[in-house]
Nucleic acid binder design. Structure first.
Lengths: 241, 241
DNA sequence: TTACTTTTTGTAATTTTTACAATAAGTATT
DNA sequence: AATACTTATTGTAAAAATTACAAAAAGTAA
């Protein structure tokens, strides 16, 4: 790491805002994306294999530096779009990791985001580094570069916490879905089985899960009613809380 | 803002780690602390009045730049200790605010932390900028600099969400406390009244709230039993979850 | 028509939450 | 010492939510 020129710091004021704006700091900040993949029995995480030192050959989270002229959220959205080519991905900031030694070559603070996608809708070719990207089960992660294992653990915990209260499944399962499909989503994410009848009662309380007049087709058993997400109602209820 | 020299960015690699370590980025990052004060009927927030532009005269959150050689959490701890002179403050990272235009003079990304303290234990003189610091009710905040209003709102929401599950009251109320004192803490933070009997039943479920054989003294009514926080048990239960 | 599969509804036991009351145990006053 | 008063502490019954499990409904396939 290059030497730090400490004369740039003014210690007779406590607020950062009095630091001259032409000061340079030898640091970088980045975003890292934990993209969870839904579609198999176990939840998956999208990892890329490092082609350069440090940690060459190890797996890492997709991420990038934040451009000087883009918001943090915009940056995460940009990386996720490049990676998944999905237009309207829901993603959320998780935590910022800023240990001094988290990067062996310098001071890099990273802001972690997570998103969850349907693996079927995911097109690896669309992203320019996609040939290196691969899904891994959250239950069996390889050795990871940097502190990316911590980032995944933290994000996975947050994902689970949000699953019951936020409609994370929106955009992941079909637009019109059966309650059994919705239940499968919950079961995969939370790695836990639910009772059919009781699950339905719980969903009944989510007013934003609305039944339609349509039914499944071409199934070798009784077709299930299809439901959909009432986004407007959800947003309205969110505001008033 | 000084012009961005985009040639420093390498776009043929997606990972930040391949960027030359001697690159400079025209950005700074800081931490901001939302210190909640317990002691009055309403919850309070500690604010400092700005003595310089921009936003001169407005109130702002105490904060500082993160040193090149200190972890984010260390940085928050340092500021909080300087501000409150309390040695073992519990604080937690809340969110990172990184909108491009959040600071009028340049790109400053800030990581927000919150803590809660007993206002009685707080000694303003200890901090070098303490003559400018003042408590404000969360219900009646003044006009705030930057996006600090957003930061407070976000932190307050998180504080409330954590109150029921984390022993935030530890270190804030007396070491040995009555259940009524504990109830008051909950009521102030959540701005909500609880039923005496039902509150006790809920606390009964928190195994880490242990009764002692001591009782209140010098009260003009029946003395209450004193309880204490079993930190070891709490940490043990945390690990196994 | 029957077997089979899944959806959908129901139900009773259990547990948790809530509202409210009764009792206990101190101090202060007469 | 007796009484009033205040808060602590315990109790209790109704209501609500959760759980385990079963039955009925509605389709396909043979």
């Amino acid at each position: 790491m290059a030497k730090t020129n400490k004369t740039l710091r003014r210690r007779n004021e406590y607020q950062i805002y009095d630091v001259p704006i032409d000061s340079f700091f030898e640091l970088a900040f980045s975003i890292d994306c934990v993209v969870f993949g839904y579609g198999k029995k176990d939840l998956q995480v999208l990892l890329t294999q490092r082609g350069a030192e440090p940690y060459k050959g190890l797996w890492a989270l997709p991420g990038d530096l934040v451009y000087p002229d883009e918001d943090l959220d915009t940056s995460a959205g940009r990386v996720l779009k490049a990676l998944t080519s999905l237009p309207d991905l829901n993603f959320e900031q998780v935590h910022t990791f800023g240990a001094v030694d988290r990067h062996p070559l310098g001071r890099v603070v990273t802001v972690a985001y997570y998103a969850i996608v349907n693996m079927k809708g995911f097109n690896p070719k669309a992203a320019f580094w996609a040939d290196k990207a691969k899904w891994h089960s959250v239950k069996n992660l390889p050795k990871l570069a940097f502190d990316h294992r911590d980032i995944i653990d933290y994000s996975y915990k947050k994902l689970k916490e949000s699953t019951m209260t936020k409609p994370l499944w929106n955009g992941v399962i079909e637009e019109k879905f059966t309650l059994t499909q919705l239940q499968s989503f919950f079961e995969t994410v939370l790695d836990k089985k639910f009772d059919k009848g009781n699950f339905r009662k719980k969903i009944d309380l989510f007013q934003y899960v609305k039944e339609t007049e349509e039914f499944e087709k071409d199934v070798p058993y009784r077709p299930s009613r299809l439901f959909k997400f009432d986004k407007k109602l959800y947003q309205k209820n969110e505001e008033s809380s």
